[in-house]
Design a protein around this nucleic acid. Sequence first.
DNA 1: CCAGTTACAGTAACCGGTTACATTATTTCA
DNA 2: TGAAATAATGTAACCGGTTACTGTAACTGG
Lengths: 350, 350
Amino acid sequence: MPIGYVLTKNMTKKSHSVTIRQVAQKAGVSVATVSRYINQNAPISKDVADRLKMVMTELRYVPHAAARQLASQKTRVVGLLLNTLHNDFFVPLLNGIEAVVRKHEYNLVIATYLLGSRDMPPPIGPHNTDGLLIFSDGLSDDDLASLHDRNFPMVLVHRTPPDSLKIPSVTVENKRISFELINHLIKVHGRKRIMLLRGPIHQEDSYWRETGYKAALEANGIPFDEKLVLNGDFERHTAYNVLHEFIATEKQISFDAVFTGDDDAAIGVLKALHEHGYRVPEEVSVVGFDDLGFSAFLTPPLTTVSAPTETVGRIAAEQLFSLFDKQYPEDDVTLLPTELIIRRSCGCTS
Amino acid sequence: MPIGYVLTKNMTKKSHSVTIRQVAQKAGVSVATVSRYINQNAPISKDVADRLKMVMTELRYVPHAAARQLASQKTRVVGLLLNTLHNDFFVPLLNGIEAVVRKHEYNLVIATYLLGSRDMPPPIGPHNTDGLLIFSDGLSDDDLASLHDRNFPMVLVHRTPPDSLKIPSVTVENKRISFELINHLIKVHGRKRIMLLRGPIHQEDSYWRETGYKAALEANGIPFDEKLVLNGDFERHTAYNVLHEFIATEKQISFDAVFTGDDDAAIGVLKALHEHGYRVPEEVSVVGFDDLGFSAFLTPPLTTVSAPTETVGRIAAEQLFSLFDKQYPEDDVTLLPTELIIRRSCGCTS
DNA sequence: CCAGTTACAGTAACCGGTTACATTATTTCA
DNA sequence: TGAAATAATGTAACCGGTTACTGTAACTGG
C-alpha cells in the first residue's frame, strides 16, 4: 500500500434514531418479532412481549414513520384539501374531522390548493396520504376523476361529485332552507328589494342558496333584479368592501334586505351598513347562513340558518375511514338537515 | 422437473404506482439521473432533462413521499401541536402558519395532544416531521427537554421555554396591555369590582393577563378579591356556563365589570349577562383579548386588545424554517406588540 | 402413536427513493 | 499539449421498516 493512501472511511450517517434492529438485538429476538409486536398482528409469547416492552421504553424507540409507510404501503395519514381557510367556518369543520382522525390514530395534513396553480400536482394525494377529504372546489373535476380512476379513497365536503363519479359526498341542505329564509323576509317583513351577496362562483353552497333565493322571489311574484346581486366569497373583508363600494357608487339602487350568503360575510355586511348609517333591521334586514359561534352575539343578533358543520366534518371523516375498509356509504350524497334560526337582524323581535 | 412441480410465482404487489425506475427505463437513463433531475441537485444535460420532463408527465409520475423521506432522512413536513382547537383564535394563527409552510413547499400536519394522555408518544415528532410548532401547553416540559436534547427543531407559540432551554418562542405582550385595559376600566369608568375570568390554568397568556390585572388593581388601591376570579379556558361555552353558574349561586357577590380573558370567552360572558338581565356596559363593563374578527360586531362592540395572531403564526413558522438552516433567531423570545382597542362594551361611547 | 394444526419465531427480499463512489467525455489552462 | 478540473451519467449500497416463506416445538384428535 503506497504511502499517502487514504482510507475511504465509511462515514456512517449520523442518524441517531433508534432502529428496529437495535431493539431486536437488545431483546434477543429477530426484527420480524419486534415488528409483529408493534403491529399486534401475530401471536407473541408473553415473556418476549414483556421484554420488548421494556427494551422499547428503555431505548425510547419510536418506529420511523416513513419506513413503515414505504414497507406497508399505507401512510396512516388523511389529507384535508381546502381552497382557503380565511373563515371561522373551518373551526367546527376541523374539529369534527380532527376528532375522528385522532380516534383512528391517523394523522391529519392540511393543505390549501389554489385552483389557479395548475401544472403543479396538489401537495397531498396518493403519494403521501391514504385518502382525502376535499372541501368544496379544492380540486378540479379532472383531478377528481383521475384520482377516482385510480381508486383512491376520497370524500367530498360541501360539494357533490361531478358527472357519475361514485364519490361519497357530505353536505347540507341549502336550497329549501334558503327559500324559507327569503320567504320569511318577504312574507313576515314585507321585504321586496332583497340583495344577494353571492359566495365564491362555482361553489355549490353558493349556487343552491342563490337558487333558493330566486325561487322564493318567484314564488312571491317579485322580479329578480340582477343589480341586487353582488359577488362575494364568504369572507368578511370582501363582503365589507363589496357592499361599501356598492353603496358608495350605486346610491340610486335601493334595497331593504341583504342575504349575505354566510355568517362570516354577514359581519362585513353589518359593518358596511352601520358605517353608512343604515339601521338594521329597521331599514335593512340582514340574514346569514351557518350559525357560527358568534352569530347570536352580533349587533343585532343574526337571523341565519343553522348548519351542522362539525357533524359534516365528523361524518365525512367517518365515511373516509369506511372507504378504507371498502365500505361504501349507503347514499352517495349525505345531505344534512339545516334549520332556520330567527333572531333580530331580519326584523323579528325575539 | 417432476410432474406437479409448483412454481413459486412472484406475485408482484399490485402497487400500481409509477416508480422512478419505470421513468428511468422509459427515458433510457439511470434512476440516479432521474433523482437528480427531480431534486435539481446536480447538472443534467438539456436533452435528458427535456426527455425526463415528457416521460414524467406522460407517466403521471409523482415521487413516493415515504420513499424520499426514508432515503433522505427528511420529511418536508412541519407539525403543529395544539391542545385544542375549539377557538376562533386558531383561524388567523393557522392562516399565518399555513402561508409560510406552503411557501416553502412543505406539508403541515396538525395534531391535538391532550396533556392527560401520557404513556403514548405524541402523534407527531421526530419520526414524522422535520420540526414542530408547539402551541401553548401542547407538550410537557419533559417532552420539550427531551426533544431539545436530541436537537430537534422546534418553535414555541404563546409559551416561553422552560428553564434555560434554548428554544425560540413567539408570543405577544400580555401583562402591560392587561394592566392598561384594567386601568382603563378603573380610571375611566370607575369600576371597582372587576371580575376576572381566567384562561386555562398554567397557560402563559392567562398567567400574564392575570398578573396585569392584579397589578392594575394594586396600582389603584383596589384590594384583590379571590371571589371575583372564575376559572375558564378561553372557550365560549365554558365561559357561559361558569358565569351563569356564578350568577345563579352567588347572588350576593356584586361585580361591575368582567375581564373575560379572551374574545371567545367574551361571547359566552355576554350571553350569560344578557340572559340574567345585566345591561352591558351600563351596569357591567366587559373587556376581552385578541380582537378576533367578530369582536367589533358583538352587542355591544367589544373593547379588547388587538393581538397580531396571524403574524405570530407567520413568524413562528419562519423561525422554524430558519432553524432548518441552523439559523437561530436573534432573540430567544419574540414578543409582539399588542394594542388597546376601545369600543363600547367597556362603557366608552365610541 | 402419528398426521394435522397451531403457536411462535427467524431469514431475507422488498418498498421507492437518495447518494457515495466510479467512470467517461469534454473543457480549461499553465 | 498534457494535466487537472468539470460535466454528465451509471452502479449499487443504503434508509428502517413489513411480510412471505420456512422451520420447530407443542398440541389435538382419532
